[in-house]
Amino acid sequence: MYGGGTTFEGIKAEKKDDPVKLAEFEARIERGEKIEPTDWMPALYRKQLIRMIEQHAHSEIIGALPEGTWITRAPGFKRKMALMAKVQDEVGHAQLLYSAAETLGKSREEMIDDLINGKSKYSNIFNYPTFTWADCCFISWLVDAGAIVNQLANAKGSYGPYCRALDRICAEESFHLKYGHHCVIYLAAGTEIQRQMFQDALNRWWPPMMHFFGPSDKISVHSDTLMKWKVKMGSNDDMRNQFLDMYVPKIRELGFVIPDPKLNKNEETGRWEYTEPDWEEFKRVINGDGPCNKERLAVRRTAEERGRWVREALRSPKTVYQMPLA
């Protein structure tokens, strides 16, 4: 998942499922087999997967916007070429993911409509603005790093088309991560102004980065069913902990200060301790009241409206995807 902030709702299993088929389905997952589009699956499984893959896909196209806005302004050929390729990859990820979700019976058009109507969410972090080039570098390095933590976990899930899409996506993400890291190293080794630029970006982005993995386990809805079905692959706090484990040392190594005086690894428990993120802000932003929600959706809406005549002119029954690209 791009943002582990996936919201799961209505996760009470419906009792309508055929118990024999359900047992067989669960046994397959237990054995580590992948579920394929034409296999039997519980309605809840289908519903939650669509929801999750769709949110992931939306996060990729909305996520292309805060970085995309820096393409024309990227400093120099080298960065510009890399950033263009990176953001293009993100759009490609959306394409792969929408087609993976389509195998579950919801069309890309319907998914994008739900995004524009606000019915379907995307990763909350993209509702924050990229004021400077350093903000863009933060995303390329650390937001992508967070995405990889989630995506590697989800690639071990049970739904075949999603897992295969994620395998391809993760391979590309590792290039993004390297690119982002280089951008930040360059700023870290630069002038005082360049160093300060990234420090400021870090100060701005740390709270949304902590939100990125979703509400703390203490307050989020658990679902043993989704865990058992390998839809959700780890708890939000586990993912957050893994991210902190991998990246706090790297950030500090470059001489930057993470704006949380309580941030510290408890060596006994192996868990990171930190100031509890402001979950009220998270809720507020995910429900539409963040600094860029309106702008992001307005861009998407305009693109959809302006592009409608193109899609209509191209539409023919032959162009409906049934099989995933990955």
Binding site: G68, V87, Q88, V91, G92, A303, V310
Partner: peptide, 16 residues
């Protein structure tokens, strides 16, 4: 400038 703004994802990618 079409990245993220195309009439469909395939065209974002092509223009990029």
């Amino acid at each position: 400038e079409w990245t993220g703004f195309g009439p469909m994802l395939e065209e974002d990618i092509a223009f990029s």
